[in-house]
């Protein structure tokens, strides 16, 4: 899976906290694997990971590997940073991506052609290293 180093001269991103329910999700990012929490009873993906399925409230849940591919649902270019750790990256793209597994994630679209991204564009997961050996899932456009 693609590794996208953070841009030269920028800071480490603010470190995402790890909730109990999302420990498998974050652990898998150390191997650059994207997991989707899954409710077998409903046969549905869940994001963000939680203690019970938001459809049936069942608590027998598992995690499945994602294809890592999806489609941009909505996107916006930030003209200035949304928090101090993003300083120097602007302008950058924040997007909602609908994964093939039927879940939606907030993320960044990165790469040379990120600025031209639009809703409907196909994208694939890429990984930005975090200082604690986790990786943050971001997305790059899939070339036509």
């Amino acid at each position: 899976m693609t590794v996208v180093p953070r841009p030269d001269g920028t800071r480490e991103r603010v470190s995402p906290p790890i909730s109990t329910e999302a420990e498998p999700f974050w652990d898998a990012t150390r191997e650059r694997t994207l997991l989707v929490q899954w409710c077998p009873a409903c046969d549905r993906g869940i994001h963000f990971p939680r203690a019970a399925c938001p459809t049936c409230l069942g608590d027998v849940l598992e995690h499945r590997p994602s294809t890592g591919e999806g489609v941009v649902y909505a996107c916006s270019t930030m003209a200035s940073p949304g928090n101090p750790t993003m300083s120097g990256r602007e302008p950058y793209v924040v997007a909602l991506v609908d994964l093939d597994e039927g879940i939606r994630m907030l993320t960044n679209i990165v790469g040379e052609d990120a600025a031209a991204v639009a809703p409907g564009d196909p994208v694939r997961v890429a990984w930005e290293p975090l200082e604690d050996a986790r990786h943050l899932p971001v997305f790059v456009r899939i070339k036509a």
């Binding site: 991103r13 470190s15 995402p16 906290p17 930030m78 993003m86 907030l106």
Partner: peptide, 16 residues
């Protein structure tokens, strides 16, 4: 970041 869903899954992406 506070250990909330927003802190965990939104704030790291720098959305204003």
């Amino acid at each position: 970041l506070a250990p909330t869903p927003s802190g965990e899954f939104e704030v790291p992406y720098g959305m204003r």
